[in-house]
Design a protein around this nucleic acid. Structure first.
Lengths: 218, 218
DNA sequence: TAGTGGTCTAGACCACTCG
DNA sequence: GAGTGGTCTAGACCACTAA
């Protein structure tokens, strides 16, 4: 364990124990350096990671303060569906249900795919790929494997937005997922951009009982 | 903009543009330091933040590699419900529906609260608070404001796990949320620990159409 | 204006692991 | 054994802002 990690741990202990109360100034970098017997850079590193965790705020000249614990931020990771299924020990299956090129002013490729775990529908993927940004997508059949794997391999992305919500299954989607209409779905909607140009937009629909997004902090 | 930020931006550009292909070694810190005309520490700092973003992996002696874009990690933040509602321009309301102390080997406080936006049920909060870890919770009525605000003010946490899922509303919850039974709900389940001791566990139930969790990366 | 944090440097030592 | 990343230091300069 690095020294700055030990120092950060001790700082977190002080915050949690109330020795560094909320909204009160904590000692300056120089003072902390003397106390812990390390260079200022090491203190800076420990404090920076506390800032990244959202535990403290720092302003030049004004000093550092413990932030009230309003929101809590944590890391969210959504893996590839094939790995997700195989990690659970299920056999992965894939079917392309629909593929259409839509012309007009903003031509795009519309796909509807089903990802299957041990024969059970696991995820319905409704995707739109911009043919302006990714004309090479039109040449891909996507009949044997999902567009996600191709996109990951082929296309870099600079920005991704994700929205997680619940919905009642519309009759169409319900049929594809072998669920009764109105069944609850967990929906992950994602948009991907490269330098502000939209690349692809996808809605991933999961039967409620089979999927959840988890995250852990600190 | 700091030099290490510029360098990190340039590195991200190279990764996205494919100039640093996936699974190939990228130049060493020393080489990059020469190229960018900065000290090794500055390169180290830029590369470290790429590691934190999950874009590259580094191993001593083995060098640094661009990680295949399988999963994508981003920051998830779940705000306080009162702010969530007021940010949308709604009037916030609160009602305590149930409060019970449960004895036994692991005594705890069980709460059921309703958070209201403009008169409409917005979130049903089902919470359990450990009276072993937080005996002072028993003295709190929680009749005027939710336990979340008290916990945030009073109690530090060291670890938080979150699980987001969809569910069909059970008859009990449906009634409290003024929904038909079986209606789709977005459920955020959170557990909070202090040094591995469980503090509180909560299930936040939202009508599907009124709530979603969003996140943005990079 | 003085004190604080933000950054960068040049150098050093260590831990790891590949050949 | 040698080359890589991980860490720490002592010092420096700058940007910001409260007094």
């Amino acid at each position: 364990m690095a020294r700055h990690d030990e120092i950060r741990a001790e700082m977190m202990r002080r915050i949690n124990a109330g020795e560094w109360p909320v909204n009160r100034d904590i000692p300056s970098e120089v003072e902390l350096g003397v106390e812990f017997g390390v260079a200022r850079g090491t203190i800076q590193r420990a404090l920076s990671s506390l800032v990244a965790q959202g535990l403290i705020e720092r302003r030049r000249r004004a000093g550092s303060r413990v932030v009230p614990r309003t929101a809590h931020a944590s890391r969210l990771s959504i893996p590839l569906i094939r790995e997700e299924i195989e990690d659970r020990g299920f056999a992965y299956g894939y079917r392309l249900l629909d593929r259409a090129v839509v012309g007009g002013p903003v031509p795009h490729l519309r796909l509807c795919c089903l990802h299957i775990a041990d024969g059970q529908p696991f995820q319905l993927e409704r995707r739109v790929i911009s043919l302006t940004a990714l004309p090479q997508a039109e040449a891909q059949p996507f009949d044997m494997s999902g567009p996600n794997e191709w996109l990951v391999r082929e296309v870099p992305a600079s920005r991704v937005t994700t929205r997680i919500s619940a919905e009642a299954a519309d009759p169409d989607s319900a049929a594809m997922l072998a669920l009764p209409p109105g069944a609850p779905l967990l929906v992950v909607a994602r948009q991907t951009f490269l330098a502000d140009a939209p690349l692809t937009r996808v809605r991933l629909l999961h039967p409620a009982e089979s999927y959840a997004v988890t995250t852990e902090s600190f």
